[in-house]
């Protein structure tokens, strides 16, 4: 497995820059205001892979929802390619911790949800794309299976395929492997890396797993506990493919774990 850096992949990908400017977000919790994000700013280069690491409830997922356009910040702004986000858009794909496949649709129909929503259901070009995507995540034998017949890892592969079939410029991953067993997780980490390299999207991933972040990312952004602020932004200066036994890898892991505790 060889995963190149964005620079290696050339200038094919120029879109998908994320700029979070001085964003604050809060919720009402039993009538009390609960600040979640406190003046957070973050810039992500097009085509790079950035992980957000922090303790549970530190607002990382909240930030992801803002970039997805599912929520609006109370203060500050979020820009994609210099334009403020107006709402959810197919150019920004989303993968949750739960696969959230629609249980009454087959794998092929779930993966084809994006094209269907946009009215390309019958278009042969799109149908081929759906098929390609299903093959790419290794589910070609399960096209007509229902989500209830899939294992957790297979369901998450289908969910990845669904998010990527519309070729988004940005892929938002909210603890995508959080509920999987160690072996499946490791396999899917490789899978996500390959898909990122192949399709050239910008990836923004929330994770609890420091090793996962180090294996995949160009940068690891560390969040403080609530209300979240960015306490460190670590450049992962490791060549790909990466291994956990590398001394620099272990050094970076130690550094990040120290920052988290």
């Amino acid at each position: 497995m060889v995963i190149g850096t964005p620079q290696d992949r050339g200038a094919e990908q120029q879109r998908g820059a994320i700029d979070v400017l001085d964003v604050s977000q809060a919720f009402l919790n039993h009538g009390e205001p609960l600040p979640v994000l406190d003046h957070v700013s973050l810039s992500v280069r097009p085509g790079s892979f950035v992980s957000l690491v922090g303790l549970s409830g530190s607002g990382k997922s909240t930030l992801l929802r803002l970039v997805a356009g599912l929520d609006r910040p109370l203060a500050g702004r979020v820009y994609v390619d210099g334009r403020p986000i107006a709402g959810p858009d197919p150019s920004r794909g989303l993968v949750f911790q739960d696969p959230t496949l629609l249980p009454w649709l087959t794998v092929a129909k779930n993966v084809g949800l994006g094209p269907q929503v946009q009215g390309h259901e019958a278009d042969p070009v799109w149908r081929r794309r759906v098929d390609e995507m299903i093959e790419l995540v290794g589910l070609e034998g399960f096209r007509d299976a229902l989500p209830s017949e899939l294992s957790g890892g297979m369901a998450q592969r289908a969910s990845l395929a669904r998010a990527l079939v519309t070729r988004p410029e940005i892929l938002l991953l909210d603890e995508p492997l959080g509920k999987l067993d160690a072996l499946t997780r490791s396999a899917l980490q490789g899978e996500i890396g390959r898909l990122w390299q192949r399709q050239g999207f910008t990836a923004l991933m929330v994770t609890h797993d420091v090793e996962e972040a180090l294996l995949l990312s160009d940068r690891v952004v560390i969040f403080s506990p609530r209300p979240a602020q960015i306490i460190a932004d670590v450049e992962v200066d490791l060549p790909r493919p990466r291994t956990q036994d590398d001394s620099r890898f272990r050094e970076l892991r130690r550094q990040i774990l120290d920052l988290l505790s």
Binding site: P88, D89, P90, F96, T100, L102, G114, Q118, T166
Partner: peptide
Amino acid sequence: VPKEYFDVCQTLGASSRF
């Protein structure tokens, strides 16, 4: 209906009719 179904479909571009 799980809220995530709407989130996912909205990011894929679904209208409220859908």
